[in-house]
């Protein structure tokens, strides 16, 4: 059994690659060739696993995203 994971979901239809989330969560997100957030976890795609200690920062990123393109799905 793996521990339940929280996921940071990126809504690409809303994301404009403004980059705030990549500054707040540099451990989780880099920027791709065009500035869009790129998960450092390989293959994470649109749902980026968030470790417990980064949950606050992730919430901050959700709140500050100018496009409201982020959603935090807490592991239950």
């Amino acid at each position: 059994m793996t521990a339940p994971r929280s996921l940071l979901h990126i809504d690409w239809t809303a994301c404009d690659g403004r980059g705030l989330c990549t500054e707040i969560l540099p451990e989780l997100l880099a920027r791709d060739d065009w500035g869009y957030p790129l998960a450092r976890t390989r293959g994470a795609g649109s749902d980026v696993p968030v470790q417990e200690r980064l949950l606050d920062a992730a919430s901050e990123a959700v709140a500050l995203c100018p496009r409201q393109a982020l959603r935090l799905v807490l592991g239950t």
Binding site: R18, E23, P66
Partner: peptide, 18 residues
Amino acid sequence: LTRSGRPLFGLPRFALTL
């Protein structure tokens, strides 16, 4: 300036927003 999507005055974008 925030809307431009650039970090300015040595501040990261999210700090500029704040």
